[in-house]
C-alpha cells in the first residue's frame, strides 16, 4: 500500500474541503477502498476519515419517507424495522450482499460508490481503461463471464457490483450531498451514475470533495409486493450474475404499478421505463412478462463468455414477475 496523509474529519464541511484536493478520498467503512489500496489500484495521497461525523441516523420525514445517514452500516439498515416494513426489497438486497462481517462495516454511501469487480480492473498487470484511462479494455475479448451486457462502450464492459443500489434504484432513492463550496445537492439515483462511454474512470456525477451525507427514500408504495432475486455462482457471499429488485402493486390480476431494477447487467443499477410500460395496465401473464423481458433485453449484447446472462436474465425476470404478481 502506498502511504497517505490521514485526517479525521472534524465536520462534514471541513471534510469536503479537505477531500477536494487532488488525490484525496473519503474513507468510511473502507471495505472496498482498503482492498483496492492494498493492490495499488487506488493510491490516494490523502484519506479523510468521516466515520466520527454524526451521519449515522435513520430518520422518518414528515412526507412519510425515510432519510438514511450515509454512515448507517449495511447490517443496521437491513435490520431497521422501518425498512423491513416499508422497503422490504432494500432489506432483502442488503442481506443478499457480502458477508456478516462486511455488512457490519460497509456504509450506505460507500456501498453506492463501490467499484467494479471486473477481473482486469483488479489485475494491475493487464490494461484497463477504468483503472488506467487509455490503456485499453482486456475484458472485451477476454474473460467476461461476470461483466455487462447493457450500457457498455468499446472502452469498458464493467458491471456495478452493488445489490443495495439496485434496490434503491427501484425505490427511486435520492442521494443528498454536500459540496466543497458549501452547496447541498439532491441527486435522483437515476441521474447519479454515468455510463462508461469514453471515460469509464468517471462513474458518478459527484464532484471533487462532494460528500454523500444521506440517502432519501420516498414514502413507501402502498399495497406493494417486494422482491429481490439474485442469481450467483454460489449460494452466499458472491456477487450477482443477474439480479432483480421489484416493487409491484396489483389490482386483481392486472398490474397497477411496477418498479423494476436490475443488477449484474450494466455499469450502473439498471432500470428501463419500457420494461414497466410493458407491464402496467396489463393482465399478469407469461405473455406480458415475456414482453417485459423483450423490452429489457432488446439492446443486450454479450461478449462471449457472458452471453448466457441474456437468457438467464430473461428467465429470472419472468420467474420474479410470477412471484411478484401471483400469476
Amino acid at each position: 500500500m502506498k502511504t497517505f496523509q490521514y485526517e479525521r474529519a472534524a465536520s462534514a464541511e471541513t471534510a469536503t474541503t479537505d477531500a477536494a484536493t487532488p488525490g484525496a478520498k473519503f474513507i468510511a467503512g473502507g471495505t472496498n477502498l482498503l482492498d483496492l489500496m492494498k493492490l495499488q489500484i487506488e493510491t490516494p495521497g490523502k484519506l479523510v476519515d468521516i466515520t466520527r461525523l454524526p451521519l449515522g441516523d435513520i430518520e422518518s420525514r414528515d412526507d412519510g419517507g425515510l432519510t438514511i445517514g450515509t454512515l448507517v452500516p449495511n447490517s443496521d439498515l437491513a435490520a431497521e424495522p422501518r425498512v423491513i416494513e416499508g422497503y422490504e426489497v432494500l432489506s432483502r438486497a442488503l442481506l443478499a450482499g457480502a458477508s456478516g462481517q462486511l455488512r457490519n462495516k460497509a456504509t450506505t454511501g460507500g456501498n453506492l460508490l463501490q467499484r467494479t469487480r471486473c477481473y482486469y480492473f483488479y489485475d494491475t498487470a493487464t490494461p484497463c481503461n477504468k483503472r488506467e484511462p487509455g490503456s485499453g479494455c482486456s475484458a472485451i475479448g477476454g474473460f467476461n463471464r461476470i461483466l455487462a451486457v447493457l450500457g457498455t462502450s468499446d472502452k469498458c464492459i464493467a458491471t456495478h457490483p452493488s445489490d443495495m443500489a439496485v434496490a434503491m434504484r427501484a425505490l427511486d432513492a435520492t442521494i443528498v450531498t454536500l459540496k466543497a463550496d458549501g452547496d447541498r445537492r439532491r441527486i435522483a439515483i437515476a441521474d447519479f451514475y454515468r455510463l462508461p462511454g469514453e471515460t469509464p474512470e468517471i462513474e458518478t456525477v459527484l464532484e471533487p470533495g462532494e460528500l454523500i451525507t444521506a440517502v432519501e427514500l420516498p414514502k413507501p408504495v402502498e399495497g406493494a409486493r417486494h422482491l429481490y432475486r439474485k442469481v450467483r455462482d454460489r449460494a452466499s457471499y458472491a456477487f450477482a450474475l443477474v439480479s432483480v429488485a421489484g416493487v409491484v402493486v396489483m389490482d386483481g390480476t392486472t398490474v397497477k404499478s411496477a418498479a423494476l431494477a436490475f443488477g449484474g447487467l450494466g455499469p450502473m443499477p439498471w432500470r428501463n421505463p419500457a420494461v414497466e410500460a410493458a407491464l402496467v395496465g396489463k393482465e399478469a401473464s407469461d405473455a406480458t412478462f415475456a414482453a417485459a423481458a423483450d423490452a429489457l433485453l432488446a439492446d443486450a449484447r454479450g461478449f462471449g463468455s457472458n452471453d448466457f446472462k441474456i437468457p438467464l436474465m430473461r428467465r429470472t425476470l419472468i420467474a420474479s414477475l410470477r412471484e411478484l404478481t401471483g400469476a
Binding site: 490521514y6 471495505t31 482498503l34 482492498d35 476519515d49 466515520t51 456478516g100 462481517q101 457490519n104 462495516k105
Partner: peptide, 18 residues
C-alpha cells in the same frame, strides 16, 4: 475476524488509526 465495539468485522480491512 475480531469484535470491534461488540460487532464482528474483518480486521484486515480496517485501519488501526481509524
Amino acid at each position: 475476524t475480531m469484535l470491534v465495539n461488540g460487532r464482528r468485522v474483518n480486521s484486515c480491512l480496517t485501519l488501526a488509526v481509524m
